[in-house]
Design a protein around this nucleic acid. Structure first.
Lengths: 227, 227
DNA sequence: CTCCTTGTCGTCACTATGACGATAAGGGGT
DNA sequence: ACCCCTTATCGTCATAGTGACGACAAGGAG
């Protein structure tokens, strides 16, 4: 077989929740095209490298987060013939959800990587290079949808978290406030969503809160409801 | 830029509901590799051709269904280095939902294309070439999930349909029986799911049934529930 | 000790749902 | 013409889930 010239890349939508806001990791491009513009982290797939392997490698290079337990999933593939001025480059987008850990951007490969408010970027469709605005929009929408029917919000949390911290994740990702009492009832009544540790914490102030860890569920019955 | 040798293809999971069963369009491969085995229709992306354009072209070639109104959506991309013995071939899978029209396979490009029961194929993981069993599984699961929260079941129906015919689609795709009375209530009460035409039909026997067409909704509130 | 903050439980009205009875309105057979 | 069979459609009822919100619990700060 001989093939047409074509590049294959992966781009990453790396999301976290910091200071109660949904943030995305962006890098400032140091080389053309789109030099000086913000872009999603990404890179070319190496020969004999699986797509997800490429994505995990990029994730590690850009963030220092090499842990296998980071949630990573494929979102979509973008292949418009003119999406990259260098030639035909098809990009497979992945979504990564990471907890708000210390030293996240440290050890990063890209010259200048930083966390940016996702809503700010989404509001300005010209801010990102290539078709990355669309990729980001699709990634964020995927995350919002998954929070409804999967326990994935816990991927944004440390291993042990309170119900309020989990609520903060939902509020940040969905961008709307939730009733603390109904949220508490819903989460604790949904089978295997979270399981109590038995200990409490006062790190959020106020009355000590129970600590929980992720449950065993892969799908939420019934789902959480947005708006 | 120079690129590693790599082929880019699209594969199609084309689903329909015939005789109350979910069926998938398969072709019998006439050339190696996997000669004589069943496979999903597909083909290579041409230079300067958009991915979805490729998928629509393949859809037209294999089924004669060139209508733009056929529902087509991207499902996922498969890129394991060894998934194709001919070399590195990355495949973008698309899901097409087509109504049970007359003369579907006629005018087809592939030597032998035919509708096969999806459940039969899914039950036998060795029946399909390449990693097509996984692609089919992912495509069918996508269809099942979308029937819950989108009005996409109507994509399997002709322009005008009865509630029972719509129920038949749900039963076939989900593989479980639904209560006709509750289903009727649910569908007619979900805003903009379907809209009555005003006329009736007796083509399904029994008491004449109202005819409906698709409503304007893109998401169902509340969703249909499986099981 | 008091106030302030957050956590947790409870109440209540309303909606959605599953199970299922009952009636409507055609077609086919005799 | 009539009866029966089939499917359509409406209704009932008990129950689960949800949004709105009151009330109390249990720490820390001043």
């Amino acid at each position: 077989m001989d093939f047409e010239p074509l590049g294959l890349a992966t781009d990453l939508v790396i999301l976290t929740v910091r200071d109660g806001r949904l943030q995305v990791l962006l890098i400032r491009r140091g080389i053309p095209p789109y030099r000086g513009r913000w872009a999603l982290p990404g890179g070319f797939v190496r020969p004999d490298e699986d797509l997800e392997t490429t994505a995990r490698r990029e994730l590690a290079e850009e963030t220092g987060l090499s842990a296998e337990r980071i949630h990573l999933e494929q979102v979509a593939t973008y292949g418009a013939p003119d999406r990259d001025p260098r030639g035909r480059v098809v990009s497979v987008a992945y979504l990564a959800l990471v907890p708000d850990l210390p030293a996240p951007v440290a050890g990063s490969d890209a010259a200048s990587a930083s966390w940016v408010d996702a809503t700010d970027v989404l509001d300005d469709s010209g801010r990102l290079a290539f078709d990355h605005h669309r990729i980001l929009a699709d990634g964020v929408e995927r995350a919002r949808a998954k929070l409804e029917y999967s326990p994935l919000a816990t991927a944004f949390c440390p291993a042990e978290f309170t119900i309020s911290e989990l609520r903060g994740v939902y509020e940040a990702v969905w961008g709307l406030p939730l009733d603390p009492r109904n949220f508490h009832r819903k989460v604790t009544k949904t089978r295997d969503f979270v399981a109590p540790i038995g200990t409490t914490t006062t790190r959020d102030g106020g009355r000590p809160a129970q600590l929980f860890h992720r449950g065993t569920a892969t799908t939420l019955h019934p789902p959480m409801t947005r708006g």
